[in-house]
Design a protein around this nucleic acid. Structure first.
Lengths: 261, 261
DNA sequence: AACTTAAGTTCCATTTATTAGAACTTCTTT
DNA sequence: AAAGAAGTTCTAATAAATGGAACTTAAGTT
């Protein structure tokens, strides 16, 4: 067991609600002896991985981490490209846009573009939501085969809301529809009154896959505006897919069903 | 010598021009045996500190790092507050704004707001510039005593441009002027034709100190506009200083000299 | 101001990980 | 198919990490 494990665990202790940690935090969160916690935090600070807050006993992520983390966006150029598309669409229509990645059965927001409208969806980056119960998640799951999706959920799942898929069969039907139409849609799933449109795209050379999503209040968006969102998002994603030569990309395929939901 | 040292060194290998590293990169950059480089990269990936790019032998920062690094801004909430002020001023006047921190004798950009004008200053975050030869640097150095500034430069320095301080005595004079006026100014220092206005502010409870800066082309900015920038920046910084009870804050003090430069 | 408790640090012998070099494998180039 | 480059695995020697207890410091409490 390398000390890198412990260091990575320390990083995982930080969250939106925990911006700094102390020796006792580590003892209770990670269950390590406080002698180790004390030395670990000091060692990580000495190496520049953490900073002490003032001259207190509190430790927070360092500037180095902020800089290296920032590079992630550029390193993963797919994210950068997808972010540009979502930013453009979000600016154009005024609704909140964000891009997400999948880690196992979870979807994690990577970048966000807050909308301009007074009533808008607020998503903060770093949030984790279940993949099967969101449009972003299904846009990404649709890129897997049915067998791979089944393998992700060996013990099934329980739907968190009325409109989410209730079981694996229902999920696979929704994924098939996502593949056919070229986009995924959710309504009242994670947040009541919120509708979201998502498109998945990947980069075969890096193996990265991201979901582009626009999220908006269901009540105030006209059918025509919804169609415009779908078209813009799909068009932008298609450009990226062409660039990366993404073979698993599902192009937009609007039928009567989608034009009048 | 802990493996944390090596891990931190790996992080420091990443830069704007190097988004991923290989075993041989580490060998040449850090001078370590390639057996160590190989195992280190794999260990860091296994712990979630790095990711492999696709299925290649290239390693890049991980999503975890991006998330933890993102928290730096909130952990150091002074940065967030200062960023809000600079963003507001930048939006208002259309010129590039950024906030920076000092690490020893270097200034590092943390967040940036690109201006709207066709001719604008482009500063990318993560850039390092010498503290004594920039307005941001002097805004932060002014918060130290003369003795502390001397201690920072035991062997003096050499001026990189005509308008930068040539020696310690000249620097201390400029710092005294910065303290009196409540802001620092540079002209043709880091970049020819560029003028910058900076104000420093700190948070005594965390020990953080940041510089708020607006940077603009010297030729196209009228004296009145320059004064407006100074006033907006100083006002925003003063609000932060009041909030954090920053006792080392130097309030704006405009004399004839500043109003007609 | 003395007491009490909580939080953090240092010490120690023991256990465990890390190191550097060489041999080995795999991938690329010609 | 051969040669070279890049990466991985192996080894014993070396160095670091561990956890328990003793110790120090800080923060309340009476």
């Amino acid at each position: 067991m390398s000390i890198l494990t412990a260091a990575a665990d320390v990083f995982r202790c930080f969250s939106r609600t925990r911006h700094d940690v102390t020796v006792t935090d580590l003892v209770s969160l990670l269950g390590m002896p406080k002698s180790n916690a004390s030395r670990l935090l000091r060692a990580m600070r000495d190496e520049g991985l953490l900073e002490t807050v003032g001259d207190s006993k509190r430790y927070r992520p360092s500037l180095l981490l902020a800089q290296v983390g920032q590079l992630y966006r550029f390193a993963a150029s797919l994210i950068d490209r997808a972010d540009a598309v979502v930013g453009r669409v979000s600016d154009q229509i005024g609704h909140t846009g964000y891009i997400s990645v999948r880690r196992g059965t979870e979807i994690i927001g990577v970048t966000a573009h807050p909308g301009r409208h007074a009533l808008r969806v607020v998503t903060s980056i770093g949030d984790r939501i279940p993949a099967f119960a969101s449009s972003t998640g299904r846009a990404l799951l649709a890129r897997l085969s049915d067998a791979e999706v089944r393998a992700l959920y060996p013990e099934g799942f329980t739907a968190p809301s009325q409109t989410a898929p209730r079981d694996m069969d229902e999920l696979l039907v929704r994924l098939a529809e996502t593949r056919r139409a070229g986009f995924a849609e959710s309504h009242d799933e994670a947040v009541r009154g919120v509708r979201a449109i998502s498109v998945g795209v990947g980069d075969p050379t890096t193996g990265d896959e991201v979901a582009l999503c626009i999220s908006f209040p269901a009540a105030t968006v006209e059918p025509g505006e919804r169609l415009a969102i779908i078209r813009s998002l799909a068009e932008g994603a298609a450009e990226i897919a062409a660039l990366t030569q993404d073979k698993r990309f599902f192009p937009l395929n609007l039928s009567n069903a989608e034009t009048a939901p």
